[in-house]
Simulated scan of single mutants.
Amino acid sequence: MSSSSAKRSASTFRAAVVQAEPVLNDTAETVAHAVDRIAEAAREGARLIVFPEAFLGGYPKGADFGITLGSRTLEGREAFALYFAGAVDVPGPEVRSIADAAREHGMEVVIGVIERSGSTLYCTALFLGADGSLRGKHRKLVPTALERCVWGRGDGSTLAACQTPLGTLGAAICWENYMPLYRTSLYEQGVDLYCAPTVDDREVWPSTMRHIAVEGRTFVFSACQFLRGPDPDQPPLIRGGSLIVDPLGDILAGPFYDAATILYADIDPGAIARGRFDLDVTGHYARPDLFELRTKT
């Protein structure tokens, strides 16, 4: 932990970031895996746990669903139907199982899911309270590249951050972290605990997370999937790189690559006020006379 965070307040708590492998096309098994990880983190004293993007429902990296410009294949439609069947309803039985585990262990849970709503899928982050409630959800606003062919776009109805006993929680999913106006909307809501569930395992990702931590003077929790391919002798399809960063950009845990793990860090909320002493981008360091953000909810 950085020197700015060394002096802990009475409200210091432990947070966990999960880097793990979902079971593609077996959502029930993945739910059981998530419940086990919550119990494991609870044994380590964690009160907040963050899972990767698309953990329930899966991220089918490398799949093309038979899509070429102007045409689709029957095999691709069958692949999508299988993927659709593995998505979860919100609320629904799979979400209830995770929420029950959150309540049992007194844990705030942020988890990426593939949400099924009608006949459309969304890449969604769920906020589940330590009391077992569904505090809220956020749907990814702009699916990236080919993701747009299998996921719908989120809208303004899921932009709100969540109030928790640990602080204000918000989430930006994967490349939403490259959307400056969305980040600003989270800063305006006073996000203290900024969650970045992702599948981006590139070397540049940790620098993005550190920039956001410094920009927003917020704790950043980036949970990336670890996903092996069908050939165990080949590099993983998604190699991880999860990390936890404090409000001055110091890395508290990670980045960790090439294996499943749970990262832990002790979080001192007092570090946020110390960080915003000289930079509050939507407060004393803003120029509302020159710039205005309008958010349509």
Rank of each mutant, 00 (worst) to 15 (best):
198 T>R: 12
198 T>E: 11
198 T>G: 12
198 T>L: 13
201 D>R: 03
202 R>M: 11
202 R>V: 11
202 R>S: 14
202 R>W: 04
203 E>W: 07
203 E>T: 13
204 V>Y: 11
204 V>F: 12
204 V>H: 07
205 W>I: 13
205 W>M: 15
206 P>E: 09
206 P>G: 08
206 P>H: 04
207 S>R: 13
207 S>L: 14
208 T>W: 05
209 M>K: 05
210 R>G: 05
210 R>N: 04
210 R>D: 08
210 R>P: 00
210 R>E: 15
211 H>M: 15
211 H>G: 14
212 I>F: 11
212 I>Q: 13
213 A>C: 13
213 A>H: 10
213 A>Q: 11
213 A>R: 10
213 A>L: 12
214 V>N: 01
215 E>R: 10
216 G>M: 12
216 G>Q: 11
216 G>C: 13
217 R>E: 06
218 T>L: 01
218 T>M: 11
219 F>R: 09
219 F>Q: 09
219 F>G: 09
219 F>D: 10
219 F>P: 06
219 F>T: 09
221 F>Q: 06
222 S>Q: 10
222 S>R: 09
223 A>S: 14
225 Q>H: 05
225 Q>K: 04
225 Q>T: 07
225 Q>D: 07
225 Q>L: 14
225 Q>C: 06
226 F>V: 01
226 F>R: 00
226 F>W: 00
227 L>D: 02
228 R>N: 08
229 G>F: 03
230 P>L: 09
234 Q>K: 12
235 P>G: 04
235 P>N: 04
235 P>D: 02
236 P>L: 05
236 P>A: 08
236 P>W: 03
237 L>C: 06
238 I>K: 01
239 R>A: 05
239 R>M: 01
240 G>W: 03
241 G>D: 03
241 G>Q: 03
241 G>E: 03
242 S>N: 07
242 S>H: 07
242 S>T: 07
242 S>V: 07
243 L>H: 07
243 L>V: 09
244 I>K: 03
245 V>M: 10
245 V>Y: 05
245 V>L: 10
245 V>A: 10
247 P>Y: 02
247 P>S: 08
247 P>T: 06
248 L>Y: 02
248 L>Q: 15
248 L>G: 13
248 L>W: 01
248 L>I: 15
249 G>Q: 10
249 G>N: 09
250 D>I: 05
252 L>Q: 08
252 L>W: 00
252 L>P: 02
252 L>F: 02
253 A>K: 02
253 A>G: 04
253 A>D: 05
253 A>R: 02
254 G>H: 04
254 G>V: 06
255 P>E: 09
256 F>L: 15
256 F>P: 00
257 Y>A: 02
258 D>W: 01
258 D>P: 02
259 A>Q: 12
259 A>K: 11
259 A>D: 12
259 A>G: 11
259 A>Y: 00
260 A>M: 13
260 A>Y: 00
262 I>R: 09
262 I>W: 01
262 I>V: 15
